[in-house]
Every structure is written in structure tokens, then in C-alpha cells.
Design a protein around this nucleic acid. Structure first.
Length: 477
DNA sequence: TTTTGAGTTGTTCGA
DNA sequence: GTCGAACAACTCAAA
């Protein structure tokens, strides 16, 4: 039995069950050093955003607790991981380092450089796939290219199936001596004054136990009605597993297994597939968060309009379903999937503001902010990405509201100032008569803003801009 | 190599 | 009120 300890480097895999790196470390029979490194330098501008930092704090707290129950402790370090890991190896004489892979470009580059440095010191280094159903480099079209269209990508995964069964939770963890580390509270991940995350606390239960409970609740209460209910903004018909998945509190393999044991759910599993597809794209196209996947979009005439951007961010565009969505995001760190499409379409097509501004805002305000999902999805809505939405798909915020929030429950929850308007008017308050507005106690421009753009005009402007893009392409040599 | 069918989530207009 | 067509052209994946 080797005496030199094994370091388990936790990253976006904050769980004990189905954790291949932890499993390998336990099987190595070495005493363990369980480590998390807060690295705000390596990711550059993609360092963990504000809302995600709240989640991260709570998730680490939960992980440390479950580790403690098994007789070990979680060591916290801060700084560049490519310096902290070798430093810890030196300080402890560690003989092995295990981690689960990430697919963000900065992480891929860092890990690729770190591995040979550690191995040169005689350290055993192993990395594993814990975040995806299949390692994304192994999925290729028949001609050997990465997939750029979702459907064939997903068909390929379905044909292959998921062979791996989830790994069990280790019963006990044998800790190696004492290691110095930071105190979690000193990282200041939680907002202080003002505490804008107050509502997060009642909304979410970060950590492995919370993820497991959310999955069980979804399977027993919502999976059967997922197909019908998933687009209804006022219902909690979606899984809300995205932040748990981002932080690795539950794995897609566990979800795959659980859904199939519960009788299956193709539509829901294909959403797991989209997450998979986004990581595949980011791995193969590492500039996805910065550059248009379709270079033709480099010529798109995005508008510079800080006022309109701010109105969108604060949820004061004058379109109730858009504003409700943006306020849900601000209050809870989350936004319903359908609402994300409506709000994103509005920013890109009604306001003609660059998708990268939307991406930045979501990055900072979402608790499930994920570089692959965020950039792939924004580019998808913009039309600049893989398998992108056609240029003429411009959501009408009134029609969408009426279709997916027919009883106005979603708007009333997030825009209480409009609560007294009747259903027929709640998605278009500007159509209300003076008497109807007075009855509802609403004065437009005072209690709720006038529209910052008129739909038909904005739609025509967007169509013209996209048309210009295609004619520009034609005129290229 | 060439060909063929397909491609998450929509809206509007006119019959 | 309902329904089908138009809204472009391009690129992708596989036969």
C-alpha cells in the first residue's frame, strides 16, 4: 500500500457519487488529499460570475460536509491552479493526482501543460470523463469531422448508448495527515451589501443532496408531463437541474440511468443532449465564446445602444414577458428555458444588440452559467452558430406571452405592478384603454415603462439587417 | 465525387 | 377562425 498521498482535485464535479477521479484515488489505496482550488486567474474574463459564486460557496460547503461525514476533510486553496497543484505536491510528497476533465479552452490548455510537469516529478496523473455521456473527441462524423448539426450528433449518441453505470459513493475516505488551506468564508463568494442573493436561498439547494432531491422530484412529479408542460412559463415543469449539472453535483450518466429506469423520456434526454452538443462544439471550436462560428456574421450591423441594453438588463423594455424573464433572472439567478429564448431574441432581433453583450450579462447573473451552453445558445439564437435559428425566426413577445403564459401567472409573479390587468391585456398593456389602466391602477410611463421599440418596426428592421448580411455575402469576391 | 434530404423551440399574410 | 405558404440561401451528414 503506497504511503504517498493521492490528491483528488475537485473542479466542476462537486459530488462523491459517480465520481471517476475520486473512485480511482480510492482504489489506489493511497491516503487522500481532497482539494478544491479557487482559480480566478486562469479563466481570464470567464472567471466565475457573481451569481455562480453564490452557488459555488454553497456547493463547496455541502461537499465539505459530506466529506467530513466520511472521516476526511476538504482542503481549499486559492490561486493559479497550475501553480497550486505542483506546490501542494511538493508540500505533501503526493504520489498521484486525479481529476475529472473540463472542456473550457482555458482548462484544456492548462491541464495539457500541467500533466507532463507533474509526471516529470514522478507523480501518477490521471484524468477522467465525469461531465458528459461521451468524451466529445470520440464523436465524429463519418468523414472524421466534428458534428455541426444537433440531430445527427444526438442520433450518434443514441446509437452508441451509455454503457457506463454510475459509480457508487465511497463509504469511507482515508485522509492523509493535515494540510493547510483557506477558510471558505475568506473567499468572499457570497454577496454582502446589498445581499442580492437573498431570494436564491429559498429557491435553491446547492450540493449533491440537493441535486439528488431535485432529480427525484423531477422524475416522480414532472417527467411524465414534461413534453406538454416544458414551455409553460408559469409552471415548474422543467427539471431545473442545470446549475446542479454545471457544478457536477449530479452527472449526466446518473440522469440517463435514472430517466431510463423511470420509463424513459426522449424529449428530456435530448435536452441533456444539447448540453452535450455544446461541450462538443466548444471543445472543437474554442473561440465559440468570442467569435461568430459563421464568419459571415462578422459583418452584421449590431447597434451600439447602451440605454437599450440597460433597459433589457433591468427588465424595463415595456414588453411584459421579456421584463418578467429578466427580473426572474435577477431575483433567482435562473430563467425558464422558453423565457431565455424570448429574452435573447428580443435583445438580438428587436434591439439589434450583439449576442456577446447578452452572453456577458447571463454569465454574471445565472447560477447555471456554463461557458459551452451559454456561448452555443447565444450564437444559436443569433443565427451565427451551429444549426442556427433561421433569420426570420423573430419571436413576437406578445404572441409568445399569450401562448406560453396564457393566464399571465408568470408576468404577475415578476411584475406585480401589472397584476390587476386582465389576461387579455397583460401581455400588451399599451392596448388597454385609459379606463382599463385606471381600474388596474397602472399608469404607463410611471408604474410600468412604455415600449422601447415597437414590434412591427423592430421586426422589419431586423429582417432588413439580415437581408443585408446575405447580399453582402453575395457581393464578396 | 456528387447528390440528396434535412435542418429545436416562428410569424405573418392571404385564401 | 383555420390553414398553408412564404420568408433565403446555405451548410451539413451520409448515401
Amino acid at each position: 500500500m503506497p504511503d504517498a498521498p493521492a490528491i483528488v482535485w475537485f473542479r466542476q464535479d462537486l459530488r462523491l457519487a459517480d465520481n471517476p477521479a475520486l473512485d480511482a484515488a480510492c482504489k489506489s489505496q493511497r491516503p487522500l488529499i481532497l482539494l478544491y482550488v479557487l482559480d480566478d486567474e486562469t479563466p481570464g474574463r470567464w472567471r466565475t460570475g457573481a451569481a455562480s459564486r453564490w452557488w459555488l460557496h454553497r456547493s463547496i460547503e455541502a461537499l465539505a460536509e459530506t466529506i467530513a461525514k466520511r472521516g476526511a476533510s476538504l482542503t481549499l486553496r486559492r490561486g493559479r491552479a497550475d501553480q497550486q497543484i505542483p506546490l501542494l505536491v511538493e508540500q505533501t510528497g503526493a504520489g498521484a493526482v486525479y481529476w475529472n476533465r473540463q472542456y473550457e479552452p482555458y482548462a484544456v490548455d492548462r491541464d495539457r501543460l500541467l500533466k507532463p510537469i507533474l509526471r516529470a516529478k514522478g507523480v501518477v496523473v490521471e484524468s477522467f470523463n465525469a461531465a458528459l455521456l461521451h468524451e466529445p473527441v470520440t464523436l465524429r462524423t463519418k468523414s472524421g469531422e466534428p458534428y455541426r448539426v444537433f440531430s445527427p450528433f444526438w442520433r450518434a449518441i443514441l446509437a452508441r448508448g451509455v454503457a457506463r453505470a454510475p459509480l457508487p459513493t465511497p463509504k469511507a475516505l482515508r485522509q492523509w495527515g493535515g494540510v493547510e488551506g483557506n477558510a471558505l468564508r475568506d473567499w468572499n463568494l457570497l454577496p454582502a451589501s446589498p445581499n442580492w442573493a437573498a431570494e436564491f436561498e429559498s429557491e435553491w439547494a446547492p450540493g449533491e443532496a440537493g441535486a439528488s432531491a431535485a432529480l427525484q422530484r423531477f422524475l416522480s412529479e414532472k417527467l411524465a408531463g414534461y413534453f406538454e408542460g416544458r414551455d409553460q412559463l408559469g409552471q415548474r415543469a422543467t427539471s431545473r437541474l442545470s446549475p446542479h449539472l454545471h457544478f457536477g453535483e449530479v452527472s449526466p450518466v446518473q440522469i440517463w440511468r435514472a430517466v431510463n429506469e423511470a420509463g424513459g423520456g426522449d424529449k428530456f434526454l435530448s435536452e441533456i443532449g444539447w448540453r452535450e452538443f455544446s461541450s462538443h462544439l466548444l471543445l472543437h471550436f474554442p473561440t465559440l465564446p468570442e467569435k461568430n462560428l459563421r464568419p459571415a456574421f462578422d459583418a452584421f450591423p449590431w447597434r451600439h445602444d447602451p440605454g437599450a441594453l440597460a433597459a433589457w438588463q433591468r427588465g424595463v423594455t415595456g414588453y411584459p414577458v421579456v421584463d418578467a424573464a429578466m427580473r426572474e433572472l435577477w431575483a433567482t439567478g435562473y430563467m425558464h428555458n422558453r423565457a431565455r429564448m424570448i429574452a435573447a431574441s428580443f435583445l438580438l432581433k428587436h434591439l439589434l444588440i450583439d449576442w456577446r453583450h447578452g452572453q456577458d450579462w447571463f454569465w454574471d447573473t445565472l447560477v447555471d452559467a456554463d461557458l459551452a451552453n451559454n456561448s452555443a445558445s447565444w450564437q444559436w439564437v443569433a443565427g451565427s452558430g451551429a444549426d442556427a435559428a433561421p433569420y426570420f425566426r423573430i419571436f413576437n413577445p406578445v404572441t409568445q406571452g399569450q401562448r406560453y403564459d396564457a393566464d399571465g401567472a408568470y408576468v404577475r409573479r415578476w411584475l406585480p405592478e401589472l397584476a390587476a390587468l386582465p389576461n387579455a391585456l397583460i401581455h400588451a398593456p399599451w392596448e388597454a384603454s385609459a379606463a382599463q389602466l385606471a381600474t388596474a391602477g397602472v399608469e404607463l410611463g410611471r408604474d410600468y415603462p412604455h415600449r422601447i421599440v415597437e414590434h412591427a418596426e423592430a421586426r422589419a428592421r431586423a429582417l432588413a439587417a439580415f437581408k443585408g448580411l446575405s447580399s453582402m455575402r453575395k457581393s464578396e469576391p
